[in-house]
Amino acid sequence: MNLPSILLWGFVASVVMATITEGSRGLGWTRMSVPFMLGSMFTADYDSASPVGIVVHLLGGWAFALLYALVFQALGRATWWTGALLGLVQAIAVLVLVMPVLPSLHPRMANERTGPEPTRALEPPGFMALNYGTRTPLFTVLAHLAYGAILGGGYRLLS
């Protein structure tokens, strides 16, 4: 594994992915705020949640790049399109598998069946995060496609 390469491009890909998700949120295309969702797992302070979440999101993206590198090594190739394909798989897994069960994993997220509680008041994302807007899956997929493509393209260039 080319560790310096994957660390460099992992960082770039994480920043681009976060920019796409936050940009689409800022433009009103979705209400999904990954930083707020992640940060509120660690703190109940409204003002601190997003800054904490941005750091966690970037670090998570960086760490996830190592998994991508392992897959590239196993495949014996790293191209922008193989990276994008991995990103698509990851996005679908996040939307279909992770989002619906997030209320069970998140300490401050409400449950659709029981409703909000004093310590669990955050709106759950629902299937494919559609609760946060019908365009949420689209931008989630786009962000992950960009993430994977940058990793695949960049990793190939420096290998």
Partner: peptide, 9 residues
């Protein structure tokens, strides 16, 4: 606006 809602009990 632009983030998940918080739903107080």
């Amino acid at each position: 606006f632009g983030e998940p809602a918080v739903l107080p009990p």
